[in-house]
Design a protein around this nucleic acid. Sequence first.
DNA 1: CCCTGATTCGC
DNA 2: GCGAATCAGG
Length: 170
Amino acid sequence: MSWNEERIELLKKLWADGLSASQIAAELGGITRNAVIGKVHRLGLSGRAKTPSAAVPRSRKQRTQTPPRQGGFVHGNVVLAPRVAPEEMPEVEPECAVEPVENVVPIGQRCTILDLTEATCRWPLGEPGRADFSYCGGRATPGLPYCSFHARIAYQPVVDRRRDRRVVGG
DNA sequence: CCCTGATTCGC
DNA sequence: GCGAATCAGG
């Protein structure tokens, strides 16, 4: 991999956005965090305003409004998906109100947070903060933040096992 | 032990 | 210029 204009621009943006060197390396692909740091220094843009992750763990108490869904949050004008750990992802039978669309994005073609729009699936993949964190990036089902595949998981009815009946949406 | 950025130095 | 190795730290 080489530092073409495009990759340098992305590097600058991601660095300015406060992403860590390893995160940037993962986004750019085929490169290590050392390479990123080295390049950052050569470009003379080391020393950021703040490093969100390592910075002061700001108390996060005030919240004027309740998020639309539990765990949901906002990036720019895009509502991101609530996170569900891979272990917690249930196997889902095709019982879903969402019309299936064949658009599942293969692993390896996942997108970064910068690629997300209202039209892309915002299903998070991997651990936030980790270098491999990314998003599905598939084609979102109209009106939903997910592709049809992840919409099935997200909106799978929750079953109250005590009485074996549904307690939440469907 | 996980991670962070900074620096050095051979290539 | 590049980046692995290393350092110093959270």
